[in-house]
């Protein structure tokens, strides 16, 4: 790993973002819009005797956390798409840059974007709905980190698919993460899923995170088993996705399609 080259790629994206309104909107506009719509729904539902405790924490908190996962994935995949759109892949991969350094840079870029989205979301939730995510306590931090890592794994997986199949697979940059949403149990407990989907949910790190978050909200104590499951699965998936990316990189080099990805 060479820090200078990783720094170069991060700088390349900072240059891009500083003068691109659409890219800034990606950080600010969509999270804001999501929160406004879901916030009003939460306010509306809160007027009823639904029997659901902590309804704002459940929905707005879940929404913010889901957005973290989504933006972490996007941070990786969109960084790669930027290189396709600007037909810059050959410039990068014909340089001394290693695939691992490329991934490291996109992971750092993704983390920065997630932090920006988190700040915006937390502020909007507090300003509009008087909801303070941090009342859930510091115990939320390891769960948030796990969501980010799951987002990275999905992002790396998606990037490899786009690298292999080209721009035809670009739509996956926006759709892939939602395949995992039903079994991540963002807005409902795992127990409401049919039996076989519950089994699937148990191998999804995000499902453990959201179960853990609900346990924190309802003061059921610190959900250490859920955290351990999420962390273990994430370690496995992140490693697998990085190995997968390197394998696909070798495949596209062998097939000669790396330079044609953007065409």
């Amino acid at each position: 790993m060479n820090g200078n080259r990783i720094h170069a790629l991060i700088l390349r994206h900072l240059y891009l973002y500083k003068r691109s309104l659409p890219r800034l909107m990606e950080i600010f506009y969509w999270p804001l819009l999501d929160l406004v719509v879901w916030g009003f729904i939460t306010v509306y539902l809160g007027q009823f005797e639904s029997g659901l405790p902590h309804i704002a924490a459940f929905f707005i908190g879940a929404l913010i956390l889901w957005d973290i996962l989504f933006r972490a994935q996007q941070g990786i995949t969109i960084s790669f798409l930027e290189e396709i759109w600007s037909r810059n892949l050959m410039n990068l991969f014909a340089s001394p840059l290693k695939p691992g350094e490329f991934l490291a840079a996109t992971i750092i870029i993704s983390f920065c974007k997630v932090v920006a989205v988190l700040i915006v979301s937390v502020f909007v939730a507090w300003a509009f709905y008087s909801f303070n995510l941090f009342v859930l306590g510091v115990s939320l931090i390891p769960f948030i980190l796990n969501l980010i890592i799951m987002g990275w794994s999905i992002g790396i997986l998606t990037t490899a698919i786009i690298m292999r199949y080209g721009q035809e697979a670009e739509v996956m940059a926006w759709g892939m993460v939602f395949i995992f949403q039903p079994v991540s149990c963002v807005f409902y407990p795992v127990s409401v899923l049919p039996g076989f989907l519950q089994t699937v949910a148990h191998v999804i790190p995000a499902a453990h995170v959201f179960e853990g978050m609900r346990a924190v909200i309802t003061n059921d104590g610190f959900p250490l088993p859920e955290l351990m499951w999420a962390s273990g699965l994430n370690a496995l998936y992140l490693l697998a996705s990085i190995l997968w990316f390197h394998h696909i990189y070798d495949v596209v080099k062998a097939k000669g399609i790396l330079v044609r990805v953007g065409e």
Binding site: N4, A8, S86, S95
Partner: peptide, 16 residues
Amino acid sequence: SLTVEENLEIFGRLYE
């Protein structure tokens, strides 16, 4: 989306 100078800055760093 980068200026001429920014492009050279990036590739200068990539090649150290």
